[in-house]
Design a binder for these strands. Structure first.
Lengths: 186, 186
DNA sequence: GTCTATACGACGATAGAC
DNA sequence: GTCTATCGTCGTATAGAC
């Protein structure tokens, strides 16, 4: 079995970079082969389902990374504020302080394939559930906690859009920095 | 001069519907001719610059509508809260209570053409400037007003993304309803 | 596992009849 | 002003050699 010239992890990261910036329709197989250094047919060897399978694979990888490296922080032993701030730092790193678009936004334009709609929704729900738990822990009632959780996610997503539109990253920083307050930590 | 089978206004509205939902790359000329009832070549007769000119034309029309029907409300004679609420109602109508995506988001994915980047930015700036003026009028200092204005726009944009992701329109309603408070009206 | 070569449809765009 | 017909390119996807 000949060695792979690029690892699955690296491959997924390159695909992620393109899909998050351009969306599903905005990225061509030519773009993908240039970014990965693999020819079309090699990409099809790795992803027999073609471009759709590549996109789904990226979404799965992102949800996995998110759960493992970000949302898991919510269950640490540290004080509540510290955990929320740690999550904020991880999110800021994932979006390169607001310079990178959100995959959930770019992949849901147009009429997304069912696989894509289901996975983007699941990832959004995972984020909201974590924020909700933190907010409940901060003392909010369940209903209020769910609302503030959704609004916190919206603040981040919106800040990323505005950052792209106006080239001003300060809104993203505020969305991250305000996370503890938003979730109800005095 | 033979009569036009579809008015410029109707034509632009159909193009807007497609571009806001699918973004520039996500919409094909075939989509456009089906939505407008005009054949490719007729679309090119109206927009010699092709798809890019159609997109730019839509962006210009939206900025015009926004200035005329929404932002103009900021200069009415009514009390400040009433004017902000009126703007909220117009924005809610424009986005069909959160069911429709924002053109500024969908058109800036990928590497947008220079014309598109310039116009989306100009429209975003127009919104922020109006929000800023209202916030200053509410008693905030200039720097604070600019921040809250950007955050208010981000809240709306983010709520639209979340609405699309999770199918929950309540976040959009909250973003609109909280507009007066956000802009500093007690 | 990766490559070259190719199939074939959809893409944006244009020419010319009416 | 709208149409039919067509161009050349790029899209996704596949076959088969190495």
């Amino acid at each position: 079995m000949p060695a792979r010239t690029i690892s699955d992890e690296q491959l997924t990261q390159e695909l992620l970079g393109l899909f998050r910036a351009g969306g599903f329709d905005g990225v061509s197989l030519t773009d993908l082969q240039e970014a990965t250094g693999l020819k079309r047919s090699s990409l099809y060897h790795r992803f027999p389902g073609g471009k759709l399978e590549m996109a789904v694979s990226v979404l799965d990888a992102v949800e996995g990374q998110l759960r493992e490296h970000v949302l898991s922080l919510a269950k640490d032993e540290a004080p509540l504020v510290d955990r929320i701030e740690a999550i904020g730092r991880e999110l800021s790193a994932f979006y390169d302080a607001g310079r990178l678009a959100c995959l959930l936004d770019s992949m849901t334009l147009g009429v997304p394939a069912a696989d894509i709609a289901a996975r983007t929704k699941a990832t959004a729900v995972a984020l909201v559930e974590t924020f909700t738990r933190l907010s409940v822990e901060a003392g909010q009632g369940q209903a209020d906690a769910e609302m503030t959780a959704v609004d916190a996610l919206a603040a981040i997503e919106g800040a990323l859009v505005v950052s792209r539109l106006m080239g001003d990253r300060s809104a993203f920083k505020r969305a991250i920095d305000s996370l503890p307050t938003r979730l109800g930590v005095s």
